[in-house]
Amino acid sequence: MSFRYEIRLSGEGGQGLVLAGKILAEAAAIYDDHNATQSQSYGPEARGGASKSDVIISDGEIDYPKAEHIDLLLALTQEALDKYVSDLQPGGTLVVDSDAVERLPEGKWRVVRHPFVRTAREQLGKAVVANIVALGLIVRLSRAVNEDSAEQAILARVPKGTEDLNRRAYRLGLDLGGEAAAAR
């Protein structure tokens, strides 16, 4: 039986979740040589509104590109969490921004909380790389893609001149993921 792993990155428009999803898909498809799709759903607003980016990684064909049985859900806002948590599988992993999310729904999930936006702002000086910090955590926690693959995919995709910042954000995320895995 082939493997299939579904990740949904959710939050609000402008948080870079579509980019993070595309990086994951590229890490899986180009560097790890699996199949991957990334699709998205967002509102008509340029900023704000619930936004999601679905990544499906498989070693088989991927027909339907929308996540239906999510293995890992990232929610950077309460609105996104409330809207999307029902698609998270029992036994799946729920990763939330602990500053943005106050109410956690009941469920048989493994929950990881971290203030991604605050960490990005305070430790890296840029709140905008919160998506890459979260990506690092997800990669180490889920093992859905190779860690080096994801780093290569990040560096190939982020704007020129921001490679170092993004590398630091990613590696910080990996460390957070290691801590979360150890705390289990």
Binding site: G21, K22, A29, I30, A36, T37, Q38, Q40, P65
Partner: peptide, 9 residues
């Protein structure tokens, strides 16, 4: 919209 925006290998 799905075909326009889906990213795949």
């Amino acid at each position: 919209e799905i075909i326009g925006h889906v990213n795949e290998k």
